[in-house]
Design a protein around this nucleic acid. Structure first.
Lengths: 134, 134
DNA sequence: TTTAATGCAAACATTTTGCACCCTG
DNA sequence: CAGGGTGCAAAATGTTTGCATTAAA
């Protein structure tokens, strides 16, 4: 695998702000904004390669496109997604992770990875909807 | 909302075998096989309506299309997905559910729903790959 | 220099939509 | 019979691919 300029750029862009959960179009536009023109095709091909080599994770967050984040080895987090403002917050609950690993074990699965999306309304959005703070 | 023939058919088809996790095309083809011709457009419109009214859940299972299952009120299960044979198994771990609810609470979220996909290799597929049984 | 990577445009896969017509309530 | 539902075909969206060209190693 050649470490070409476009690949550097995509990789940098994903690491720049891991919590941004950028999709392919975001990456394309952000690079363009900085003056780098990398074609969408190359971005998709690079993302697939990075996912295949385990450097990047693709996540579905309730939309029809994928979002990408750096893969942190040994780390596994879930995503809290606000249905009001769309903001995504990561969380890691080791107890939860253990519980999920146990589910896999109990079912005879060799667990490879998991993906957890929690949808709801964040504090801000609940306030603006005049909901009582719980 | 009118309870028309096409809607009955889609709804029946989803309830017929909830564990099949059918996608729109599956439903289309299964109805066709039984002699009912309902257009894909109507199937999509019906699915959206059923999801909106809370009778049906749309689930992403690692493919680019959605899968549909009846929504069981008060019940929340995760999906074990085999990367070898593609089979999907449901599981419900009340402890896990509680844990996830706690995550939402701790983050100030009013939790609406969650979605958990666990990917791995099932017992069968591990055997055929000559993996030792754990 | 050889081999793999790129850009472009076309192809794909999935889902949505505009519109004329039809059926249910 | 009125208003929503349907089928069809076209559009929208997100992603992949074929092919001629370019650039890394």
């Amino acid at each position: 695998m050649k470490f070409t300029r476009p690949r550097q750029l995509v990789w940098q862009e994903i690491r720049r702000n891991p919590e941004a959960h950028q999709n392919a179009a975001d990456i394309y536009l952000n690079l363009k904004k900085k003056g780098y023109k990398v074609s969408l095709a190359t971005i998709y091909r690079t993302l697939n390669a990075l996912v295949r080599t385990g450097l990047v994770r693709a996540e579905g967050l309730g939309e029809k496109h994928s979002h990408f984040e750096p893969e942190e080895p040994g780390e596994m987090h879930g995503h809290l997604i606000c249905l009001g403002c769309g903001r995504v917050k990561e969380f890691d609950e080791p107890r939860l992770r253990k519980e999920i690993e146990a589910v896999g074990r109990r079912s005879g699965f060799r667990l490879e990875k998991f993906s957890l999306q929690v949808f709801g309304f964040c504090e801000n959005c609940r306030r603006s909807r005049q909901e009582p703070t719980q």
